[in-house]
Amino acid sequence: MQAPVPAPMIQASDVTHYYGPYPAIQEVNFSVRKGEVLGFLGPNGAGKTTTMRILTGFLPPSRGSVSLDGFDVVEKSLEVRRRVGYLPETVPLYTDMTVTNYLKYMGTLRGMPAARIRARLGEVIDVCRLGDYRKTQIGKLSKGFRQRVGIAQAIIHEPEVLVLDEPTIGIDPIQVVETRSLIQELGREQTVVLSSHILPEVSMICERVLIIHEGRIVAEDTPQNLAEGLQGLERLEVEVGGPSAQVLPALQQINGVISVTHRNNQGRHTYTIQAQPGRDLRDDISRAVIGNGWSLRGMQLMGMSLEEIFLRLTTQEDL
């Protein structure tokens, strides 16, 4: 939107990674703007974790390159790692340390001076609502609280980029809601890259979504556009009061209709209409129904849910 486009925070070009002979991701290209919240969406095994690991410098790409804030993740790994906060999918923590000691340790590893660790510790514990568990051994915390400790260690050094791999997996629904709102809060100030296989989660948190399937990016857009692009106005359901033997052909005759299916549900006649792409037939349909003297009892756009889009995108081969 603004005239001078700032350099992207993350730039991945033609990234491919092989585990042995098997490619985990292939020719992945994407960029992330500073301050953006980007979501990787895909089923398990799609290559999300591999991508996260490459971003954080844990794995080098087999081919292609990734730069973060202008630093190459392989050549300038240390500079990249200084700028990244990372929460791996399994939330690996030292279970025999207390929350405070663990966060201090991770802060020191990130090169924070002791005074700054002390200052940040309170903030991070507040943000992640760990106040009552400062002195608790991590091993004694529930999964949800461990997740919070995991997020706390990822943000303690105020990284420019936050990489979260499946941040809400395996925790209970209330904690999922809390974690999501926490990520949204963090996303206001930081660049966030997160992965998930849950669609509503991604559309709730992220400004932009990359759908990744079998190691390739198959779609990229805002959650809204992804939904609109495919759901459109093409499919709608109408309930008509009238003899179905006449209603059906009448509907089929409307210009732009591809197909109509009729369903009789205990005297309620509903028709599902598939229109040509990009056509809005709501007015034509209502005029046709009223004009024939029948009653129009209901009309509904049958937008596909993101779930359907996701399935559709990821089950088609050439996209």
Binding site: T56, F58, R81, P92, M106, G111
Partner: peptide, 14 residues
């Protein structure tokens, strides 16, 4: 084994 190495090696530590 625990996977904590992933956080250790993604920290700016040589």
């Amino acid at each position: 084994k625990l996977g904590t190495i992933e956080l250790l090696l993604t920290s700016p530590v040589r």
